[in-house]
Amino acid sequence: MPLLPIYKKKQGQVVRWTAFLTFVALWLFATYRCFGSFPEWEWTSTVYMEGIVIPLIDYSLPVVTPKLLVSLGIGLLLIIMSAYFCFLSQRTSDFLIDTESEMRKVSWPTMKEVVKSSTVVIIAIIILALYLFVVDIGFDSIFQRVF
C-alpha cells in the first residue's frame, strides 16, 4: 500500500497529469524569475565558419545563495501543493475527473468545418468593419458641416 493513496487513481488521469505538469512548469518558471530575471551571459569568443559569425556563450550558475535556496524552497513547496491538489484532494480530483468526462462527450468539429466557420466569421468581420467605416465617415462629414 502506497504512503499516500491517490484519490480515484484510475479516473481522470489525462487531466490530472496535464494540470500537474502545467503547474510544475509555471512554478519552475516563477522560481527562476524569483531568483533572478535573466542570468549574466558572458561572450567568451567568436567562431567564424564560412562567413558566419557564431558567438560562444559561457554561463556559470552562481554559488548557492540564500536567495537561490528560498526560491527553490518556495518552488518545491508549490510543486508539492500542486501534487496534493491534483492527486490527493477529493474536491479538486472530482472536479478534474468531471472535467475529463465532460470533455470526452464534446463533439469536436472536423478541420473542414473549422475552416468554413472561420471563413464565415472573417468575412462577417470585414463586412462589419467596412460598414462601420462608411458610417463613421458619414457622421464625420455631417458633424464637420454642422459644427
Score class of each variant (00 low, 15 high):
L128I: 05
K9S: 09
I80V: 15
I6H: 01
L78P: 00
P109Y: 04
L26E: 01
I123G: 00
L68S: 05
D98C: 05
A19K: 08
V106I: 15
P109L: 06
I127C: 07
W27V: 14
V24T: 09
G36H: 07
E100F: 04
E102S: 10
F29D: 06
I57F: 12
M81W: 13
Q13C: 08
L72S: 04
L72C: 05
R33C: 02
S118Q: 11
F87Y: 10
L4I: 12
T99S: 09
S60E: 12
S101N: 15
T44W: 03
T18H: 08
K8D: 06
M111G: 06
S45G: 07
Q90S: 10
I79Q: 00
V121S: 04
S117H: 05
L132Y: 10
S141R: 14
V115F: 06
Y7E: 00
S60Q: 14
A19R: 06
K105E: 13
I123L: 14
R104A: 13
Y48I: 12
I142F: 15
I52M: 10
I97G: 01
I74D: 00
W108C: 02
Y32E: 07
T31R: 06
M49C: 10
G138H: 03
Q144G: 02
Q90G: 03
S118V: 01
Q11S: 12
L28W: 03
G36A: 01
T46R: 08
I123T: 08
V70M: 10
I126F: 12
L88M: 08
M49P: 00
I123K: 06
F95H: 06
Q11L: 13
S141E: 13
P66M: 06
Q13G: 12
V24F: 05
D136P: 00
D58F: 13
I127M: 09
L76Q: 04
V15L: 11
S60A: 13
V120G: 03
K10M: 11
V120R: 14
S117I: 07
Y59C: 02
I6M: 04
C86Q: 03
V115H: 04
T44P: 00
L28C: 11
I52W: 13
K112I: 13
F133Q: 05
S117E: 12
L132K: 09
F87L: 04
P5K: 09
P109K: 07
F139R: 07
S107Q: 11
K105Q: 15
V120D: 03
D98Q: 15
S118M: 06
L68T: 03
V120M: 10
S93H: 03
T92Y: 07
Y131H: 08
Q11F: 09
K67C: 02
K105G: 03
I79C: 10
L78V: 01
S45F: 04
T119S: 14
D58L: 11
V135Y: 03
